[in-house]
Simulated scan of single mutants.
Amino acid sequence: MIYQKFKPSTHLAPYVECYYLWESQVYLSAPLQVESPPTGYTSMIFNYGDPYRVINEKYKDVPTPATFMSGQATKSYQLQLSGQIGIVGVVLKPSAMHTLFGIPMYEMSDERIPTEDIVGKEALFLHEQLLEAGTAAGRVQIIEQFLLRKLSQPKGAFDRTDYVANLILEKRGVLPIRDLMDELYVCQRQFQRHFLKKVGVSPKYYARISRVSKLCALMAQKQWKIQDWHELIAQYGYYDQSHFIKEFTEFTGKSPSLYVKGNTELANYLK
């Protein structure tokens, strides 16, 4: 299985975390299930392989469109793949989708909306170009040019709300949200409203997502041991072990110890 990441250009770096290519080298003889915790990012996906399905708390089992945009995931979800995997995607920073496309992000949480519904027929032309491109670098370049065109006519402006969202992600959710609100906003209610529109969830909930996302990444990469609980509890700002376990289980559906032993994140399938 091939999984490659590509960095964005300097102009798009404030909005794009990375591009990625995910392909299977052989036809999958049996269905493959991959789980993902909420990551704190949104994404654009272009599928040139066989269709796959998504299971999450909101939709128990739905097919994904060939090309779609996904908002914030508020809980863990699973992908069910079969046949040939061929996906190129864009991982977008917390508020980038709103800036580039003007989407009220509270409408996008846990959703996968066909790209055509958002950008019109341009999405079909873009997908055709990606199908014709013969290399990973070629596909990434096509998407990059599309996003640069959108950046030249942004639907929103980068402001202090975007700054706070990016800072929460950078600090893994471990920072005093109330102090930030007091420092940057006269009206906290205004901040809450802007954040929900640009990111899709409240700032406090987003901080919780960011913490769990980082913890899951550590566990999936086998960089964490059960005996390290006390260190993690202190490092990630949990009150105690009970709070840590309850929070982790709420987002992933598994206790931390079970997640370490039996997660099926993509990292497990990559060599």
Rank of each mutant, 00 (worst) to 15 (best):
Y48W: 08
Y59R: 15
A165S: 03
A220C: 12
S210F: 04
K150A: 12
A137S: 05
L92M: 14
Y238R: 02
Q25V: 00
Q25G: 05
Y15F: 15
T39K: 14
F125N: 11
R208A: 14
E183V: 12
Q192D: 15
L175V: 01
V54W: 00
D228V: 04
T74A: 15
E111N: 11
P256L: 04
T161R: 04
H243R: 04
K93P: 04
A66W: 05
S210C: 15
T264H: 15
L126Y: 00
P256T: 05
E183Y: 14
P14K: 08
R112W: 02
D182V: 11
G138T: 07
A217V: 09
S70P: 09
L151M: 12
V26K: 09
L79D: 12
N56K: 04
K58M: 11
L180T: 02
E23D: 02
S82P: 06
E250I: 05
T42G: 13
Y41Q: 13
L21C: 10
K150D: 10
G138N: 03
H243P: 00
E122Y: 03
L215C: 07
D162M: 04
Y236N: 00
T99G: 05
A96V: 06
Q33P: 05
K271R: 13
K254S: 07
Q223K: 11
S24D: 01
E116M: 07
